[in-house]
Each structure stands twice: as C-alpha cells, then as structure tokens.
Design a protein around this nucleic acid. Structure first.
Lengths: 156, 156
DNA sequence: GTCCATGCAAACTGTTTGCACGCGC
DNA sequence: GCGCGTGCAAACAGTTTGCATGGAC
C-alpha cells in the first residue's frame, strides 16, 4: 500500500512541510487517543507549536485537500464545527454524550448490510457513511446529571 | 395524542402566531414533499410571505424551542447549515447525492438493533440517531457525471 | 524558472445575542 | 399587568477567499 505522502504525489500535489505536519498531527492523535477527533482550531494550535508561521487558512486548505484525496475524513459530532480523523481501516461510528460531550467510538458492521440493500434496491452508490448517535453515557446517567429522564428516542 | 399546540402549552410556552406559522410551514412541507427538509433561510422566506414582519432571529429561536420540546428535529445533510423536519412517527434516515444534492429518505430498522446492543453492552442511553449516507444517486450515475468512479467507501 | 501553496487580512455564511417594545396569558 | 417573545441590528464562530510573496519540483 502506498504511503500518505505518495498519495499526495500521485494525485499531482506538492508535499509541503505544512501538509506533512498536519497529517502527522492527525495521525499521532488517532494513534494515541482514537476518540479525540481534532477540530481545525485545535489542529492549528498544535501545528503552530511546531511551525510558528503556519496559518489557519493553510490548515483548512490542507484538510480540504486531504479529504479530497481520501486520506482524512470529516465528521459532525454534535457541535457546530467539523472534526477530523485520518481514514481508518476498520469501519466505526460515533456516539456523543449530550451531557459531557464525550465521544465514544463503536463498530456496527450491520450498516454494511443496510448500504448493500440500498445499492441493490435503489441503485445508489454509497461513498460515505455516518452513523451518529446522541444520548447519555453511563457515567452521566449514574451521576443523574441535568434533565436526564425519558427513554424515548428520535431518529434521522 | 396531544397536538403540537398543546405541547407548547404543557411545556410552559406561549403559542404565538410566529411559532404556529413556523410549525405550519414545516408540517406542510413534510406532508407535500417529505424529502424537502427546509433550512432556516428557506423557512424564513416562506414565513415572511405570510407574515412580513417576522424576523430570521425568531425563526431560529422558534426552531430551537420546537427542537427542545421534541416537535422538530435538525439534520446535517452534507451542507454547512442545518435542515429541519417535524418529528415523524416512522424511523427513517437520509442519503444525499454528492453530485446533484438530492436527498433520499430510507428506512433501516436494523439501526434499532445496533442501538439496543450499545445500550446493553455499554450502558448508553441513546436519544438521537442519525444515519447519513453520501454518494451518487442512480440518475447521476447514469449520466456519468463528474469524477464518479471507484466503488470504495469510507466510514464514520 | 514555473506554478502551486502559503500567510495575511478581509469577506462571508450561518447562527446567536442585547436591548427596548409588544402581546399572550 | 406581568413577563415571555419579538424585531432589529450588532456580534459571533467557523470557514473561505483575494492577493502578493515564497518555495516544491
């Protein structure tokens, strides 16, 4: 398998120190704290610590490029801004605690069945899958935080 | 079952003409074009056609209230802004065509199994479920639009 | 040397908020 | 009449863009 850096070259893009730095930070984050899911601002702060000249615009432009060539994916995790993670080999999804904000990753291979069904029945070609659940984590439930009550749930 | 309007009262909120109007427009949209999913701006334009004094701020404040009391839900459908629909009785999810932007709704009761599994294994209480797929619809695939190619897919 | 990528600042989109007035209850 | 809800405009967060310089190839 080709490296991330090869992927830049083969798609006709330049390997700049900024792009390498952003990819490094994302990969380090994913390796150390898989559920961390950096946002652009945090990524910028970490990048700036290693390259004081890097700009936020470059962070956004690099993320857009890395998304486009399939090295990074973006998620909406219940906040108003995007979160980023390097593409993983294993299919996983996200749960966000509405109380403490914690993100929990989980596997759900059943989603592949749903997707295949749709491809067959409706002729769709699925390129991105986002299963995002919101609710309360066990810690918050045990602390009886806030207005945690009914068990009804709404869908999308 | 209590009406939407009762729900406002029983939760200690006032029934203003603006709130009623916004709810009406959402329900009309859902009844006529279930996949429409209005955004705040479109809702505002339609509301303004019937009440020239209504402000965008009121639209946002009303939507926030209707969400809070469980009459409306918000979705991110691949664009940078929110889309709204009245809560439906039947569980459904969304596919967005990355080429033409069309939104297709589909059912996927398997998601309930995933959610129940998580509740049991990790003690989570799930309140919101969003399964959002992105890809190409059959019409766009047949037109051979843009850079539609590989069948690989990425997850979240 | 060419042209893409960067840094900076300004623009932009979607959404929220402070404040004084107005109306549902 | 009390107090929440509204309209307006200004503020705000996140993200994008125009432009001149700089560096990857």
């Amino acid at each position: 398998m080709q490296s991330s850096i090869d992927k830049l070259h083969t798609t006709g893009h330049r390997l700049t120190p900024q792009r390498r730095l952003i990819l490094d930070i994302l990969q380090e984050s994913a390796a150390r704290i898989p559920s961390e899911h950096l946002d652009a601002e945090t990524l910028y702060i970490r990048a700036k610590a290693r390259d004081t000249n890097i700009s936020l615009a470059t962070v956004y432009r690099s993320l857009a490029l890395l998304k486009e060539i399939g090295l990074v994916q973006q998620h909406q995790l219940g906040e108003d801004h995007g979160h980023f993670e390097p593409i993983q080999e294993n299919l996983h999804f996200h749960f966000t605690c509405l109380n403490c904000g914690q993100v929990i990753e989980f596997e759900a291979p059943e989603v592949l069945g749903i997707v295949h069904g749709l491809q067959n029945s409706r002729g769709l070609q699925v390129k991105e899958m986002h299963l995002h659940l919101g609710g309360y984590c066990s810690a918050c439930l045990n602390n009886g935080a806030d207005g945690i009550a009914a068990t009804s749930s709404s869908s999308s």
